[in-house]
């Protein structure tokens, strides 16, 4: 249950005079349960990598093998089911469905998976409690702060019990407090549920919280190290 990329490439404008190698012959392995930060300057290819690993973007060449599935070779239909059952997404702008309540947003993908209503409800409530929003379960996103919305998004991503969560700059729109809270929650869920988290960021405070730090430049991996400052989460969430 790992992620492995083999000579993974994504090239934009391949046939022009100035092709952009957003991801350039990348070999990378991420183990189940890791808590990985991907950092690098703007335009270095972080988003592109996460999208390819999550199966919402198609590699130009090379393979991305996620939990044994070769994402590069999957059919469109296969990818949709793959994403639904294996990948959770957290987006920079939260991207919750505005017409659904916090609770309904969290339940949504589980319902797509075909779980019973009671099951969806129970897990969604449990997750909302974990992210500290059980009191706001019936509010729509517009009634929640950015930090609260992103916590709902985390709960939504985790609800269908994915093996991997791709979080592209999840804290970019959050203040320091919300950022810390969100990382606590993510780390806690990473430890409790064994879910692999891969998140991109520019934020130094976020990077220090990662277990493993991968640095990108021009689509190439320039550094890949374990974070010596990484502390396993104590059981209490803030």
């Amino acid at each position: 249950m790992s992620i492995q990329t083999i000579q993974l490439c994504k090239t934009y404008n391949a046939n022009s005079d100035f092709p952009v190698h957003a991801v350039d012959h990348l070999d990378l392995t991420i183990q189940q349960g890791e808590f990985v930060a991907v950092m690098g300057p703007s335009g270095s290819g972080k988003t592109t990598l996460l999208n390819m690993l999550g199966g919402i973007d198609t590699p130009t060449s090379g393979d991305a093998i996620v939990d044994g599935y070769n994402v590069s070779k999957m059919t469109e239909k296969g990818k949709i089911a793959f994403r639904r059952d294996n990948i959770g997404f957290i987006f920079q702008d939260y991207s919750l469905l505005p017409v659904l309540t916090a609770l309904e947003n969290v339940e949504f993908v589980m319902q797509l998976q075909g779980h019973s209503e009671a099951e969806c409800r129970a897990r969604a409530l449990a997750l909302l409690k974990k992210v500290g929003l059980d009191k706001h379960q019936n509010k729509r996103p517009a009634m929640l702060s950015g930090g609260q919305q992103q916590r709902v998004a985390v709960a939504r991503a985790l609800a269908p019990r994915p093996k991997f969560v791709m979080a592209d700059e999840p804290t970019a729109n959050l203040d320091a407090n919300s950022t810390a809270e969100l990382l606590d929650i993510m780390q806690q869920l990473n430890e409790q549920e064994g879910t692999t988290f891969i998140f991109s960021t520019h934020d130094q405070r976020v990077i220090t919280r990662a277990q493993r730090i991968i640095v990108f430049e021009d689509g190439r991996l320039t550094k890949d190290r374990q974070n010596p400052d990484y502390k396993r989460h104590t059981m209490s969430a803030s």
Partner: peptide, 15 residues
């Protein structure tokens, strides 16, 4: 955008 998110989280085309 919203439909993009729906597709990303695994809502099928049929749905």
């Amino acid at each position: 955008r919203e439909f993009g998110v729906l597709m990303a989280v695994g809502m099928s085309k049929r749905h």
